[in-house]
Amino acid sequence: MFIMTYQMEERRREKNAKRIKAIFAVLLTAAGAVIASLSTKTDTPWYQSLTLSPLQPPPSVFGIVWTVLYVLLAISFALVATQHKPRGSAVFGYILNIILNALWSPVFFLMQEPLPALFIMLALLVNLVILMRNVWPSCRAAMYLLIPYLAWLCIATVLNVSVVAFN
């Protein structure tokens, strides 16, 4: 009887720990999204004066795409964080990715520095590829959820390069 109670209590603690890790992953991702969103200013005279790529989607597309991407990123992070023994390199990779992503918008829009923003974007891409490689062995579903994010970052990099080249 005592052993069954102990095992049930242990399972309950493990479930609670997983919930806390998942909540942490989602909240951290959401915080990065809020920082990026609050610092994205497309209505400023500086931004309006830029020559943009002909491939530039309308501003409304960015909000939709980034919302979907942040949801996928949060789910992916939560899947990895809640594993029995998550790889530290993967967790660190998610955190670094969220920080780099949150930095890009203030550097580009608020500081009005497209070239340093491009370097952040390149670091973000490198980090994401490494993150995907680190996530693959332990949680393939989490890695697959990052593929749309990688595709969009490639598009965003082209757009950032265009701003640097045309202005």
Rank of each mutant, 00 (worst) to 15 (best):
I3S: 15
T5A: 15
M8H: 14
E9A: 15
E9L: 15
E9C: 14
E10Y: 14
R12I: 11
R13F: 11
E14G: 07
K15R: 15
N16A: 14
A17D: 11
K18N: 13
R19N: 14
K21W: 11
A22M: 05
F24N: 05
L27P: 06
L27C: 13
L27T: 09
T29S: 11
G32K: 05
G32L: 00
A33F: 06
V34N: 02
I35F: 04
A36F: 02
L38M: 13
L38S: 07
S39T: 15
T40W: 03
T42K: 10
D43C: 07
D43Q: 10
T44K: 02
P45D: 11
P45H: 09
P45Q: 08
W46P: 05
Q48H: 09
Q48S: 08
L52M: 12
S53A: 09
P59Y: 10
P59S: 10
S60G: 13
V61L: 15
F62E: 02
F62I: 07
G63R: 07
G63H: 08
T67R: 06
V68S: 06
V68I: 15
V68C: 07
Y70R: 08
V71G: 03
L72P: 04
L73C: 14
L73K: 05
A74P: 04
I75H: 02
I75Q: 04
S76N: 02
S76C: 01
F77S: 05
A78L: 01
L79W: 01
V80E: 03
V80L: 01
V80I: 10
A81K: 07
A81W: 06
T82D: 02
Q83H: 12
K85T: 13
P86Q: 06
P86K: 08
R87T: 07
R87F: 06
G88P: 07
G88I: 13
S89M: 13
S89H: 11
A90L: 03
V91C: 00
V91H: 00
F92G: 08
F92Y: 10
G93N: 03
Y94S: 03
Y94D: 00
I95P: 04
I95R: 05
I98M: 08
I99W: 08
I99M: 09
I99E: 01
N101V: 07
L103A: 08
S105H: 08
P106L: 01
F108R: 05
F109M: 08
Q112W: 12
Q112D: 12
Q112E: 15
P114L: 05
P114R: 04
L115H: 04
A117W: 02
L118S: 04
L118G: 01
L118V: 03
M121R: 05
M121A: 08
L124D: 00
V126A: 10
N127C: 09
L128D: 01
V129E: 03
I130C: 14
I130D: 10
M132V: 01
P137V: 01
P137D: 04
S138F: 13
S138K: 09
S138D: 14
C139H: 14
C139R: 12
R140L: 12
R140P: 04
A141V: 15
A141S: 14
A142D: 02
L145R: 00
I147E: 04
I147L: 14
P148L: 06
Y149I: 12
Y149S: 09
L150C: 08
L150K: 09
L150D: 05
W152H: 11
L153W: 10
C154Y: 10
C154S: 15
L159D: 01
N160D: 13
S162M: 09
V164F: 05
A165R: 12
A165T: 10
F166E: 10
F166M: 14
N167E: 03
